[in-house]
């Protein structure tokens, strides 16, 4: 495992700069195919509205994957992720246009543990709402 971030150079409270991730309808179609989650709330506007949703919403797991990508890009090695958990606190509403929605992910080093492990607290927002809460990753640094 070769995380590129060194444990000794990381401080508690250190911020990881925010990154914007775009999500359009076609991304949800592709994610449905790759993940096997074909729940129509993620691709069928008519169905989504019938069950009381404002519009098609992104798979929570798509949003979680963007949070994961944020962490693995920072750490440098996806194999360094030991634990990753989130609560889906709000929906990412994806309109039927070319822009789609934007998920903005940011993070902070929340604590340092033994064996070069650190806890990253992740924040993900879309459309002014926090879409992930209690989002934490434990990663092993170099």
């Amino acid at each position: 495992m070769t995380a590129t971030i060194k444990y000794d150079e990381v401080e508690v409270g250190q911020e990881i700069p925010p990154v914007d991730y775009r999500v359009r309808r076609v991304d949800l179609i592709r994610y449905a195919g790759a993940s096997g989650d074909f729940n129509p709330i993620h691709w069928n506007e008519r169905f989504a509205k019938q069950v009381g949703l404002p519009d098609v919403i992104a798979h929570g797991m798509f949003t979680m994957a963007q949070g994961g990508r944020f962490v693995t890009d920072w750490v440098g090695d996806p194999g360094a992720v030991l634990d990753y958990g989130v609560r889906f606190s709000s929906m990412v509403v994806v309109p039927d246009d070319d822009e789609g929605a934007t998920i903005t992910v940011s993070g902070v080093v929340e604590s340092k543990l033994e064996d070069n492990k650190v806890v990253i607290a992740i924040t993900a927002k879309s459309g002014g709402s926090r879409v992930l809460s209690k989002a934490r990753a434990i990663v092993r640094l170099a």
């Binding site: 709330i41 929570g60 979680m64 992720v81 030991l82 958990g85 609560r87 209690k134």
Partner: peptide
């Protein structure tokens, strides 16, 4: 009722990749 299901929480705990 599967039509009313949304994802609440998810966690992955790894022993190795």
């Amino acid at each position: 009722n599967y039509a009313m299901v949304v994802h609440g929480e998810q966690r992955f705990e790894y022993q190795r990749p």
